Amino acid sequence: MTTMGDVARLAGVSASTVSHVLNGTRKVDAATRQRVEVAIAETGYRRNGVARSLAAGRTHTVGLSISALTNPYFGSLVHAVERALSDAGYVLIVGDSHDAVDSEKRVTDSLLDRQVDGMIVAPAAGSERSTLPGITRTGTPLVLIDRMLDVDCDQVGPENVTSARMLTEHLLDLGHRRIAVVRGIPGISSTTERFDGYVAALEGRGIGLDPSLVVEGESSTDVAEREVRALLASPNRPTALVSMNNAMTIGTLKAVRSLGLSIPRDVAFVCYDDFEWSDLFEPKLTAAGQDVETIGATAAQLLLRRIRKEDGPPQRIRVPTMFHHRSSCGCS
């Protein structure tokens, strides 16, 4: 491995002169600077950024534990966080938790071993008992993203209850009474909150919850397709469907198509999560779209404040969704 001493010998200067050129800590005459820069290029020397960062007490890295990186929503969320942190001079290290606390703990432990300056976590079910205490014990700044928990740290996520209620009420306003819901992974706050919104809409119209209309989609395209197909193939199928995330929306649409049914003629449809390419669907999807850019940028800013040791009580920030009224709901 090339050292600073190798560069100094090739340039015919002292190691301290090379250091001054690299770090700008002292003025070096133009001719000497040029010799050093040529020697750096010829030797391929690179500074040990990790050693310098550790000496300064910072690594300028942030860890992100998140699930299902293949999910378009989470991919967009990672991109939004990375852009905000990059603008502040930080590098993002991402690990996939697979929405399971055991793999989540492996990811977060690995990130802590790398001495990240802070951590952003989209918590799996049970994370508050398993993963998060281990992070807080280290004193590492922590922000929760997408899913809110009853823990003492900064958190940012989408508005879930009101948005899911709004989607369901829209179908009720169109005259539907047998409205099925496709819900996500049990034990995750976003799953619970969106289901609560669905139930609140029904109760607001005096309609009791029918368990036969609750589809356990598990935030999986394949599971949602299988379960929705079984529901729609039954004699007393629902007249409308609400899907509570984009992976399950794809599965639901595949199930409808596999049965030769048509949206919205045979079954009306609305969904939580919008797609960047949703206009390619026919009919176009009525959806509650998340403001991914704001969620990601807000999480990054909250974390940077804690890294800078700014005081203040933990913040819980809910970002409103945007209602995109299209044609899958059956409106003209």
Rank of each mutant, 00 (worst) to 15 (best):
D150N: 08
G296E: 08
I185A: 04
I317C: 06
R165E: 02
T136D: 12
T25G: 00
I135A: 11
S127W: 10
V292L: 00
L171E: 00
Q34E: 15
A68Y: 08
N48W: 09
K284I: 10
I40D: 09
V151H: 00
S332Y: 13
S190P: 09
I207G: 00
E37N: 07
R326L: 07
G126K: 06
G330A: 03
T286K: 08
L285S: 02
N236G: 14
T298K: 00
L77H: 09
I250W: 14
P238S: 05
G260R: 13
G134R: 13
T252F: 14
S14V: 07
R26I: 02
R177G: 14
A30Q: 07
S16G: 10
T192L: 12
L304F: 04
S327K: 06
A297Q: 03
A51I: 02
R326H: 09
T131M: 05
G44S: 03
A31N: 06
A268M: 10
S14T: 07
V7L: 07
A247H: 13
V270A: 05
S86R: 00
F323G: 02
F323D: 14
I40E: 13
V270R: 06
E104F: 08
A84K: 03
V18P: 05
A11W: 04
W277F: 12
G134I: 09
H176P: 11
S19A: 02
I145S: 01
A88P: 14
V143Y: 03
N160L: 07
D113E: 14
V107A: 04
A55N: 15
F74P: 08
D291E: 08
P186M: 08
P264R: 09
T192P: 14
M148Y: 08
Y90K: 13
D154G: 01
K27W: 11
A299C: 02
V182T: 05
A230G: 09
G296A: 01
L149P: 04
M4T: 00
L253Y: 10
L285T: 04
Y73D: 14
A39E: 12
G12C: 03
T140H: 01
A200M: 06
P211C: 03
S212W: 05
C153A: 06
S14F: 00
G24S: 01
A247S: 15
M244T: 09
A8Q: 02
R106M: 13
H170G: 04
L172G: 06
D210V: 01
V215H: 03
M148R: 15
A240N: 09
D154I: 02
A300K: 00
R237N: 04
R165I: 11
E193F: 09
V228Y: 05
E203G: 06
N246D: 13
G118F: 09
P72Q: 05
T140P: 15
L172W: 05
S130V: 08
G184V: 10
L231H: 04
W277C: 11
E104G: 05
A124I: 08
R178V: 09
F281V: 10
A247V: 14
D113K: 13
H79I: 12
G184D: 15
